Simulated assay, not measured.
Amino acid sequence: MQTPKLRKKPKFRNKKVVLNGTTFDSKKEARRYRELQILERAGEISELQMQYAFVLAESVKFSNEPRRKPAVKYVADFVYRVGDKLIVEDVKSEATRKDKYFRLKKHLMMSVHGIEIAEV
């Protein structure tokens, strides 16, 4: 008899939401997407994209490792333009704002790409 697989609880207790066939990591993220869609239809923003990946460090091959290590990436929840300005947004709760990996990637986005992440 096989043991049933246990579902891992989300780290920050968020609940995934499906909106128009797209799965979002939280209700807050889905709500923000609806807001951005309205702004795009109104012509206030343009080129709205979801889950856009930025390379923060290229892949590398260490001499003592058999395979290359993958590139380090930051995946933004939303990227769009207001006029000529590129806006990169990440939907965060109070708990996820303090996450050490997010803080490091936020620092690297500014250092490598000169882009400040807007936390919503």
Rank of each mutant, 00 (worst) to 15 (best):
H113Y: 05
L108I: 03
K15M: 12
L86Y: 04
R41K: 12
Q49E: 10
E94C: 09
V112F: 00
I87Y: 09
K15E: 14
M110F: 13
L48V: 08
S46W: 11
E65V: 01
R67S: 00
V75C: 07
F102Y: 15
V55I: 10
E119Q: 12
D90Y: 03
S26L: 06
E119G: 04
T22E: 08
E44L: 13
A53L: 05
V60K: 00
K73E: 01
R34I: 12
R32D: 04
I38N: 14
S93M: 04
F12K: 03
G43V: 10
L86Q: 06
A57W: 00
V120R: 15
I117F: 04
L39W: 14
L48A: 11
V75H: 05
V75T: 12
R97E: 06
S63N: 07
T96G: 04
K85I: 14
K73R: 10
Y74K: 02
R103T: 14
V75W: 06
S63W: 02
R34A: 08
S63F: 03
E35S: 14
V79A: 05
R81A: 07
I117N: 02
F54H: 02
K27G: 12
R81F: 10
F78T: 03
P10N: 11
V79N: 02
D77G: 03
K98L: 15
Y101M: 06
L56E: 00
T22D: 08
P70I: 01
S63E: 04
Y33K: 07
D90S: 10
R68I: 00
E94I: 13
Y33E: 07
K73V: 02
F62K: 00
A42M: 15
S59F: 00
